[in-house]
Design a binder for these strands. Structure first.
Length: 694
DNA sequence: ATCCCTCGAGTTCA
DNA sequence: CTCGAGGGAT
């Protein structure tokens, strides 16, 4: 119990500190998502320990106290914030809470039928824009005061600055049937576009000033300039979305508030919508999560309100937020968690890679339990220790990344991560090579295993049915010791293994026999020579094929007895310089490698000529694929491309002629647009292929 | 000597 | 997908 008390105290202090940075100084040092993550942990702990909750806790407060530089102004109607929901379950729970509190079903089964949509919708959904809320006070239709949220009760008077925002009317005009009340308090969001953030940050950088972290940050900073001229020079935008003061009794829904606001000349977000069911809300949320990138401004979710104003008021306020509304946020792309342990892996090249074992945490829709720390310099740079609370991100990239350590949450029991002095697999000595620490034993178990896995992988020997799991079993059973042993396996070796029947054993052996015929280029790649990947292997193969006859591995004349391909000759090849040449030379010079080559030859591995590049409609063009293609896998697309004479590359370069985009296109699409590269959809690609067959 | 471009290598979860 | 580093151009 005292451990959680300690954690609660630390969290409270930390949250109060970051909240002050955020609200008072517009200078957040952690992201909103990280902040949310901390708040949620505190809320959970407080829930488990209700006796420890008191009003001073940050969970019981809104915002922070205003700064002294602006004149304080009291809100006539307190400004609240919203409770967050991150999942459908939480939305469901919210609805149940509200219904229980009101003793009333919000959703009657009839209204959720599309044909019964004549009644007012139960929900109103708005985009939750990442800006700051503002109170706008109008007297007889004239804007007299604008107040920031502050702590919800007292904010700052920023009227002069707000007068520079075009989207906020200085004077309301009656455009429809509704008269403008004498006294009116409108709520709105002030924000700034992503484009404007980019423009201003470029300026800041040119002037050697600190760039703004995000659009919210910039909007807040711009609104709180003491000189309104600066505010005016930045294109602040605004939508108005609520009326706090009372209006005609005939207005019964939140949707009508928006119609009213529009009829008075306010700026309304055109994307707001009503919803008749939770399912509709889910669909909207999912749709916006996809489309958010395309919006000119940042949104971090949707705000869902009870559309009926009477019910909304009756639902009251809980803590700091109205019960009748909820912020349905998009999946956070980062979260905080604790490092439970650090394991060291050994890769094919002998590099020791530290991998953090994390307390599982949901980030961007998946549960993360491991994250690479890359190398020991990275650990040093982050200053991370075992037991630390860290920030894990998963933005755009699929691979989770530890981006920061929250040192304020340390209890003192965290352990430093020791730099290994020996290989964790076999205890061999290690050496330092740049940022990497490497196992010196070339036959190290882990290295051998990963080497074999590389050898049979697609792009190399491409032996189907021989993946990591099977390789591990064969190694454990002593069926194979090195890559060459694969080719001398026979059915009887395998079929004795558990869960390996006659049939699957035969299939695998057939697959292995088929793989014995391999192009020189793939063969060289499969060997796993350091610095030699697919491209370099191809260059090397094409050179060797010019003056050699094929089939026998022994024709590869590099290394100890090598005369044909000396270091000098290798370096003459494009893209091969002294380092790569030396790596190749050394690999062939190694006696163990020579033995393996001989074993491969004896086992019947036959080299074939690397395929000539075909001629076709796509000849001479270089292609790159991003996203998921609907009608074919990527390797298949690659094959089709090459059959039509095209060249496939995994990455976009200046030499790329065409980028083919599928579903969920990644960053490559943006890059292509930047470089002005032609973009084809899958349909266009298929049509071109068809044209080539005629 | 310096910059820019490209390749190699490592890695997560469902 | 991104980082680091090798290779080549300037």
């Amino acid at each position: 119990m005292s451990a959680s008390l300690d954690r609660i105290e630390k969290l409270r202090k930390l949250i109060a500190y970051h909240r002050a940075l955020y609200y008072l100084f517009d200078d957040p040092q952690i992201s909103d998502a990280t902040f949310d993550s901390l708040i949620r942990e505190l809320e959970l702990l407080e829930k488990q320990n209700p006796h420890l909750v008191h009003t001073s806790s940050p969970t019981q407060q809104v915002g922070a106290k205003p700064l002294e530089t602006f004149v304080k102004a009291e809100h006539a109607f307190p400004m609240f914030s919203f409770t967050d929901a991150f999942s459908r379950d939480e939305m469901q729970a919210w609805l149940e809470r509200v219904e229980k509190y009101l003793h009333k079903k919000i959703l009657n089964s009839k209204a959720s039928q599309p044909s019964e949509k004549k009644e007012a919708a139960p929900f109103y959904c708005e985009l939750k824009i990442d800006g700051l809320a503002i109170d706008l006070i109008y007297k007889n239709g004239l804007l007299v005061q604008a107040i920031t949220r502050g702590d919800g009760l007292v904010g700052e008077d920023v009227t002069q600055n707000v007068r520079t925002i075009a989207d906020i009317p200085q004077k309301l005009e009656q455009l429809g049937e509704w008269p403008i009340p004498e006294y009116l308090v409108i709520r709105g969001e002030v924000f700034i576009s992503k484009q404007e953030l980019a423009r201003i940050n470029m300026q800041q950088e040119a002037e050697g000033k600190k760039p703004y972290a995000n659009t919210r940050n910039l909007a807040a900073g711009s609104l709180r300039q003491l000189d309104p001229a600066i505010t005016a020079s930045r294109k602040l935008m605004s939508f108005q979305y609520d009326i706090a003061s009372s209006v005609s009794k005939s207005i019964t829904t939140h949707e009508q508030y928006h119609q009213l606001l529009a009829s008075w000349g306010c700026t309304i977000n055109p994307h707001n919508a009503v919803a008749y069911s939770l399912d509709e809300i889910y669909a909207l949320q999912a749709a916006w999560e996809k489309k958010r990138e395309a919006l000119p401004y940042e949104i971090d979710g949707l705000v869902i309100l009870l559309n009926n104003n009477d019910l909304f008021v009756r639902a009251g306020v809980v803590g700091r937020a109205p019960r009748g509304a909820i912020a349905y946020k998009f999946l956070a792309l980062e979260a905080t968690t604790i490092i439970r342990a650090v394991h060291v892996q050994v890769g094919r090249t002998g590099v020791l890679t530290p991998v953090a074992e994390l307390q599982p945490v949901a980030v961007g829709g998946v549960t993360i339990s491991h994250a690479t720390l890359h190398n020991f310099d990275e650990i040093e740079r982050l200053g991370v220790r075992i037991g630390d609370t860290v920030v894990v991100t998963r933005s755009g990239d699929v691979i989770p990344k530890i981006t920061a350590v929250i040192t304020d949450l340390r209890s003192g029991k965290e352990k430093k991560i020791a730099i290994p002095t020996q290989c964790p697999i076999d205890g061999s000595a290690v050496t330092r090579d740049g940022v990497f620490i490497k196992c010196t034993n070339k036959k190290c178990g882990a290295r051998n295993r990963n080497h074999i896995i590389h050898f049979v992988s697609r792009g190399a020997f491409n032996i189907k049915g021989l993946g990591k799991k099977v390789v591990d079993r064969f190694l454990d059973e002593g069926l194979i010791g090195d890559i060459a042993d694969i080719f001398t396996l026979d059915t009887s070796d395998i079929s004795v293994l558990e869960r390996f029947g006659e049939k699957s054993a035969t299939n695998l052996i057939e697959e292995i026999n088929r793989a014995k015929y391999i192009t020189l280029s793939r063969f060289l790649y499969a060997l796993g020579i350091p610095q030699v990947g697919e491209e370099t292997a191809d260059i090397l193969a094409r050179r060797m094929e010019k003056d050699l006859s094929f089939k026998k591995i022994s024709i590869i004349d590099v290394g100890e007895q090598g005369k044909k391909y000396s270091l000098e000759v290798l370096q003459e090849l494009s893209d091969i310089g002294p380092k790569v040449a030396e790596s190749i030379f050394e690999w062939f010079h190694d006696s163990h490698n020579q033995t393996v080559l001989k074993k491969l030859e004896n086992a019947g591995v036959i080299l074939e000529k690397t395929k000539q590049k075909k001629q076709g409609v796509l000849s001479g063009k270089t292609f790159c694929i991003t996203g998921t293609l609907a009608t074919m896998s990527r390797p298949h697309a690659k094959e089709l491309l090459e059959n039509a004479g095209g060249i496939f590359h995994a990455t976009i370069t200046k030499q790329t002629n065409v980028v083919i985009v599928g579903e969920n296109a990644g960053s490559k699409l943006l890059q292509a647009q930047k470089l002005g590269i032609e973009v084809w959809t899958e349909d266009v690609f298929l049509k071109k292929l068809q044209a080539s067959e005629i």
